[in-house]
Amino acid sequence: MSEFTYLFRGRNTSGSPEEMQRHLEKWVAWMKDLGASGHIKEQGHPLEGTGKVVRGAQKIINDGPYAEAKDVVGGYMVIEARDLAHAAEISKGCPILDVGGSVEVRPVQKLNM
């Protein structure tokens, strides 16, 4: 088993209360499935939409990330899967895909000594 990080991009900010609730229920169910099938290595965290970006040798601090809503990372988690293809396959169940978001699947680098 290898470890992969899911970066969830995009957020669902519109929708009626009922639609938001349905969407949330899908998330909860998906997370539960992942947990039950032993894929979750670290539950991860949701991230605030605001923050600062520090850049360059001058260490200039800007408000940020100011990306388009669909590109903002809203949270991350670490999962376990056989390989990258498997990790990507599992991510297909993520409800963020229903609302124009994306899941970035990145293998966690292992130190091979």
Partner: peptide, 17 residues
């Protein structure tokens, strides 16, 4: 109110309901 729902949507999947 919409904000509160968005907040729930961001947090509950990770922290549980």
């Amino acid at each position: 109110v919409q904000d509160a729902f968005c907040r729930a949507l961001e947090v509950w999947p990770f922290r549980g309901v």
